[in-house]
Computed example of a mutant assay.
Amino acid sequence: MPKPVYIFSSGRLSRLANTLVLETEDRKRHLPVEQVSELYLFGEVDLNKRFLEFAAQKGILLHFFNRFGYYVGSFYPREHLLSGYLTLRQAQHYLDANRRLNLARRFVEGGLENIRRLLRKEEAKGKRVSDALDTIGEILSQVKGAQHVGELMALEGRARESYYAVWDELLGEEWSLERNRRPPKDPVNALVSFGNTLLYTAILAQIYQTHLDPRIGFLHEANYRRHSLNLDVAEVFKPVLVDRMIFRLIRRGQIKTGHFLREGQGVFLSEAGKRLVVEEWENSLQATYRHLSLKRSVSYRTTLRLELYKLEKHLIEENPYIPYRFR
Results as ranks from 00 to 15, higher is better:
K3C: 02
P4G: 10
S9V: 01
S14P: 00
N18A: 09
E25F: 07
K28V: 09
K28S: 14
L39S: 07
K49C: 01
Q57T: 11
R67T: 12
R67E: 14
G69T: 05
Y71M: 02
P77E: 07
H80T: 13
L81K: 14
R89W: 04
H93C: 00
Y94Q: 03
D96N: 15
A97P: 15
R99Y: 03
L103S: 04
F107Q: 06
L119V: 13
E122N: 05
A124R: 14
R128Y: 03
I136A: 08
E138P: 00
V143L: 11
K144T: 13
H148Q: 12
E151F: 09
A154P: 00
G157H: 02
Y164G: 10
L170R: 01
E173R: 15
W175H: 14
S193T: 15
T201V: 15
T210M: 06
H220I: 09
S228R: 04
S228Q: 06
L229R: 02
L231T: 03
V233F: 03
V233H: 05
F237S: 00
D243L: 04
K256L: 13
T257R: 14
T257V: 10
H259D: 15
L261R: 08
R262A: 14
K274A: 10
V278I: 13
W281Q: 07
N283L: 06
Q286C: 02
S293K: 13
S299P: 01
R305S: 03
L306A: 05
L308N: 07
H314Y: 06
E318V: 11
P320N: 12
R325I: 05
